[in-house]
């Protein structure tokens, strides 16, 4: 059973990695967008999927990352990829500051507050806060990234850059999932009273989950800025956050494979039906309802955690 899963994953990766050879620029670009969303959705998955916090403002952290990169690159000409850690750091710091006072809010109250933050960030960007965000037009002329002197500019090159980071994300998140920290988050999601009773400092763990998710969204922001070379406040609106929220829930909360599949469906599938431009979103809405009715836990809910009996001494070895 476990092997079958791995065969599917390997085949999928192989098809994906060789696909730029046969696809045209447009479709490679679609895959790039999907890659960015995979990374973003996986970062939201830590907060929403693993920890169960209703967070509908993820685009705010994405925006902080993208604008950090854009401003520092256009003003001080710092190479884009060098700014990635800084973008993540600032997004994380921002998350820490805003989440600290609100982390104790219950589900739906947290939801509206995070929506509030994403709207405040967007309005602040439009109003050219501190005079550095370029207002409604945004910032343009962001440099292309370079790796070992090679300039990344074609969709094909970006494909490998973005999916490399996706792969790193998946690897690290798998580690996280099977760590003590990951299990604690799941425990909080399922029953926070029991978790607190077992000695888990709930707000501390929730805050860390929030910050990790935000840092990752900040990294995505750098990639987005580098890919687009132009960023504007409308790329980080409330709808963007809703989209990420839907991807995680449609794919399966807390399931990496589910979230990836969900991204392909939510971002990739509408592209396939571009010729029905006007009606496709109508169908999209209806499909979401139907999918939830038939698979309320998402398309690929995470398999239940299993532990090998002969190795209970090392609970890190979860399947």
């Amino acid at each position: 059973m476990k092997n079958k899963r791995w065969i599917v994953y390997a085949a999928f990766s192989l098809v994906l990695l060789t696909s730029p050879a046969v696809l045209n620029r447009y479709w490679i670009d679609v895959l790039n967008v999907v890659g960015l969303y995979v990374m973003l959705s996986l970062s939201l998955n830590i907060i929403l999927g693993h920890c169960g916090m209703f967070h509908m403002g993820h685009a705010a952290f994405y925006a902080v990352g993208a604008y950090t990169t854009a401003i520092l690159n256009t003003v001080y000409a710092i190479p884009v990829l060098w700014l990635m850690p800084l973008s993540g750091l600032l997004a994380g710091l921002f998350a820490l500051v805003i989440a600290r006072p609100i982390i104790h809010l219950r589900g739906d109250y947290l939801l509206i507050v995070t929506i509030g933050f994403v709207e405040i960030v967007r309005i602040a960007l439009i109003n050219n806060v501190f005079g550095i965000t370029g207002g409604a037009n945004g910032i343009f002329g962001i440099d292309r990234p370079t790796i070992f002197g090679m300039k990344i500019s074609t969709p094909g090159q970006f494909f490998y850059l973005i999916w490399f980071f996706v792969a790193v994300t998946i690897y690290l998140l798998r580690k996280l999932e099977h760590s003590r920290f990951g299990r604690a988050l799941n425990y909080i999601r399922e029953d926070d009273v029991a978790a607190a009773g077992s000695g888990i400092d709930i707000s501390h763990y929730k805050l860390i989950a929030f910050v990790i998710g935000a840092v990752w969204a900040g990294f995505c922001g750098t990639l987005f800025a580098a890919k687009m070379t132009i960023i504007a406040p409308e790329s980080f609106n409330f709808w963007e956050s809703v989209l990420l929220f839907m991807i995680v829930l449609l794919g399966g909360r807390g399931s990496i494979a589910g979230v990836i599949l969900g991204t392909f469906l939510v971002i990739g599938l509408p592209e396939l039906f571009r010729q029905f431009a006007t009606a496709r979103m109508l169908v999209f809405g209806a499909v979401m309802i139907i999918m939830m009715i038939f698979r309320p836990e998402g398309i690929l809910p995470p398999p239940p955690r299993t532990y090998r009996l002969d190795r209970t001494a090392e609970p890190e070895e979860a399947a």
């Binding site: 829930l249 809405g285 309320p296």
Partner: peptide, 30 residues
């Protein structure tokens, strides 16, 4: 959109609601 999901997790119904919202918006636009 909601009755079939009454026993499901709360967030499933939220996604269904978002789907309904997209559906309504686009039908009016069409």
């Amino acid at each position: 959109a909601y009755r079939p999901l009454r026993q499901a997790h709360r967030l499933s119904a939220v996604v269904s609601a978002l789907g309904a919202s997209i559906f309504f918006q686009n039908i009016v636009m069409l």
